[in-house]
Design a protein around this nucleic acid. Structure first.
Lengths: 328, 328
DNA sequence: GGGTACCGTCGAATCGATTCGATCGAAACG
DNA sequence: CGTTTCGATCGAATCGATTCGACGGTACCC
């Protein structure tokens, strides 16, 4: 009878309750005192009409805030394969949630253009400005930005881990074990990736790059198979994620190599690899701290306060996957 | 000098360009013809002022559409550990992207209340209405909803796979191999979970439930270790994801059991498990088709057209992880 | 009893765009 | 030359709320 059942607005509720629009608004927001009986009349009218609550879009237009922050994670298909992403996301979500802010995961739409979202702030994780076109749009609109392990960007707060230093410490560990020829399996090009490679090259300037692939078992295993099949010309392989390292260990064993007897393998991140019966030597980064620092910085920015850059320490964890270099 | 540098609005651009507000709007949207010289004057003025383009919030308020659809995935910390989620997400993102719609991943905030987002449509994946409070809010606001493998819900289009039938086919395969006592490792309670369990019980009414855990290696391995350590009272373990199945295989071997000689293990999903040197017997579900059907249904609903429910077939893939029951 | 606070309510302005309908001028037509 | 038509432009209404300032009434204090 009444067409496509228009959704009632606050104005409908107000007139049904016999109060003014402003009073009805106050009854919902509680921003100014409203008498108990009036509030009840408004709420009853709302229920009777099936009013779904204040329209968020309208509220945001007026208030200029949406209560939602986004986190850009790069391409959906790879962003979540890496177990290192999860503890950080958890921590971010915890801190923001406690502050009453919603968290939105933004997969990189890559090909298609994402419409601009009403966000109070954005975290760019790993994926830097170059791989995220909307960056400029949000920046121009004055949306506070935190860049995690990305290139410096004026106006944005950065959260970093000591990728380069950590990588160098790991390299030195290998050098101490007598390794001279090492190769590395890298992730796809990114800022922390370049830093880590630089750290490795501080100690092994000639380190060979086997190839780059996402942090998932299948890709790493394929690359490792090709490389190791010819008989490794190296005594150690440094990987840029633990998932890759685990894959390399598995592949080396399949080819009859003993780890670490014939080949030392190291990872990065410090995430559990329960399917491996060997503790990896790796560089442990404080994933939850990273998320915590990120969210805290963003909260400060959203509140209009300055947020200093953060650099988090990493720690070498020596496991059972690295050992003395096989003598020539 | 000019305070906190207010972001210019379309009105600023219009007056700078010497045209009316409406003309400036037309120059950006192209919804009605504007002379070339006028358009250029507007665009130049916009550039000069640093105008970041039409404010999306204001546009959405007027148009009633946001160009963004959300997909609810359940708790962040578990939703992405399952490799089965990714191909589906990919497919959804592809179809929606091609239609010019943005995709938003909504991690379940669980504890904290997520502010309502301006969405044109929502996909509830696995997580049903019960685990997603905002469901009712969006439904009340008339947002089109597609429920993937969730309980039926009036007004929402559902996309399902034949979980129950597939599970039953797998069970029959085991029965044919002579298995009589089987146990199952389930995922956390959910709609498809119950269906699959029902399918299994069609054939093995007494099947024992070892326990429920997320689809990640660590959790499954822990459960399997406890169960198998006492000497398995069963000849086959049916898992509800391939990741779990792979973990059970690994754990069984660690305990000296041969798979499938001593124990048959089956999975569900049909995703690659490259770190396992054994092809799993599993129920393959068409993950990409599922995503495709989901996105297509949502597009129809957003366009105001009806979208019929969809049920997708599954297929038993017999691998090398199941074999004849060890005779008593 | 008169003056001051304060509480509850209301009207109107506002956020930043889109869009309907009207207007104006120039081109096309009979 | 008068009329119609069409395209470009503009003014004003609109989307659905929040919020500022004003107003009237009651309670309280001296």
């Amino acid at each position: 009878m009444d067409g496509p059942t228009r959704i009632p607005t606050l104005a409908d509720v107000a007139s049904a309750a016999g109060v003014s629009l402003s009073t009805a608004s106050l009854a919902f927001s509680g921003n100014k005192p409203v008498s108990g009986t009036t509030r009840q009349r408004v709420l009853d009218a709302a229920t009777a009409l099936g009013y779904p609550g204040p329209n968020p879009i309208a509220r945001h237009l007026r208030q200029g805030r949406s209560g939602v922050v986004g986190i850009a994670l790069g391409p959906i298909s790879t962003a979540f394969r890496d177990p290192a992403a999860l503890p950080m996301l958890d921590a971010v979500s915890e801190v923001l949630g406690a502050a009453g802010l919603g968290l939105l995961l933004m997969g990189d739409s890559d090909v298609h253009e994402q419409p601009l979202l009403p966000l109070d702030g954005i975290v760019y994780n790993i994926c830097g400005r170059e791989s995220w076109p909307a960056y400029d749009d949000y920046a121009a609109r004055g949306v506070p930005i935190v860049v995690v392990e990305g290139p410096d960007w004026p106006g944005a707060t950065s959260v970093d881990v000591e990728s380069r230093a950590g990588s160098a410490v790991l390299a030195r560990h290998l050098a101490d074990l007598g390794h001279e020829r090492v190769a590395t399996l890298t992730l796809e090009p990114s800022h922390p990736q370049r830093e880590r490679l630089a750290g490795l090259r501080e100690v092994f300037p000639e380190a060979e790059v086997i190839g780059a692939c996402p942090s998932d078992t299948a890709s790493a295993q394929r690359l490792a198979a090709d490389y190791l099949a010819g008989g490794p010309g190296v005594t150690a392989v440094v990987c840029q994620s633990d998932v890759q390292a685990a894959a390399v260990v598995a592949e080396a064993r399949r080819l009859g190599l003993d780890v670490p007897g014939d080949l030392s393998v190291a990872g990065f991140d410090g995430v559990p690899t329960p399917w491996l019966d060997l503790e990896l030597t790796t560089v442990v980064q404080p994933l939850r701290d990273k998320g915590h620092a990120t969210a805290t910085a963003l909260l400060a920015l959203v509140a209009g306060e300055p947020a200093p850059d953060v650099v988090l320490p990493v720690e070498l964890r020596v496991g059972a996957s690295t050992g003395p270099a096989r003598s020539a």
